[in-house]
Design a protein around this nucleic acid. Sequence first.
DNA 1: ATAAATGCAAAGGATTTGCCGTCAA
DNA 2: TTGACGGCAAATCCTTTGCATTTAT
Lengths: 149, 149
Amino acid sequence: MDTSPTAIEKRLTTFRERCAQLGLALTPQRLAIYEVLASTGEHPGAEDIYQRLKPSIPSLSRGTVYRTLTLFESHHLVSRVHVSDEQARFDANLDDHHHLVCVRCQRVVDFQDARLDRLPFDEAAPGGFHVLGHRVHLLGLCPQCQEQV
Amino acid sequence: MDTSPTAIEKRLTTFRERCAQLGLALTPQRLAIYEVLASTGEHPGAEDIYQRLKPSIPSLSRGTVYRTLTLFESHHLVSRVHVSDEQARFDANLDDHHHLVCVRCQRVVDFQDARLDRLPFDEAAPGGFHVLGHRVHLLGLCPQCQEQV
DNA sequence: ATAAATGCAAAGGATTTGCCGTCAA
DNA sequence: TTGACGGCAAATCCTTTGCATTTAT
């Protein structure tokens, strides 16, 4: 995900607009939670976000983080990523994209490749399944984990 | 997954062999748990398996089901499927395959398509990621859920 | 002002774990 | 007999929820 200041700004602007449209209150907690997601490509989980914000917002509670993330997801402001078993992880990148998953450290990196966006699956769907979309997970080792092997 | 009697038999035979090779005891519980997985394409979760076996093995405990599934997975006798948030689900189909996931009822169906087995991703991996394999999830509606919409 | 949002703590579900009795090699 | 295995219950981890209070619009 592009995490340049410009791209982050853009995401935040869109976020404020969408909240207004949706009639969602723009509380400091919500803004802070969204900011964390908008400015990282790390796909943090609820607990990660809670820990990152606790110092600056001491009153913040886990419940709010969970509730807010679920709310954001239901309004398609962020998406939920299921990697391995562990906790759910979140992503503010709403562009069509796929994921590289490190099988060792579980790091998740977005990547885009037009060639993977149109797969020959429509005709392939067996059993009358009606395919709406697809997700590709590339499993492998991130640079850091390659060194440690 | 092919659930014809012949295919199931074949899986069971392989399973027994692998257990012997690995020095794993072939207990009634383990066999029963594997049989459930070998004879269904439903990708049941631990609780599903427990419920299905409880009537025939009243002494069975959840702990054993969980422990056994984890053991199987660590020896690559079954694989763990992460669909949505809910519980982990298991699959005795070890052939290379992908998954159709119903976004409505969460049904998971295996499917194979040679065209999806070689994707143009090797060169695509950004940031020095070393890609070892990939998984394609096709998201859509199963026949039953299409009718209910 | 008023409905919505937060904090807190308790509840919930899925899974793991420790302990002890049991069983098979 | 001896280590592996299963049953049971307690513990753990992640997440949701109810309720009283505070806040955004």
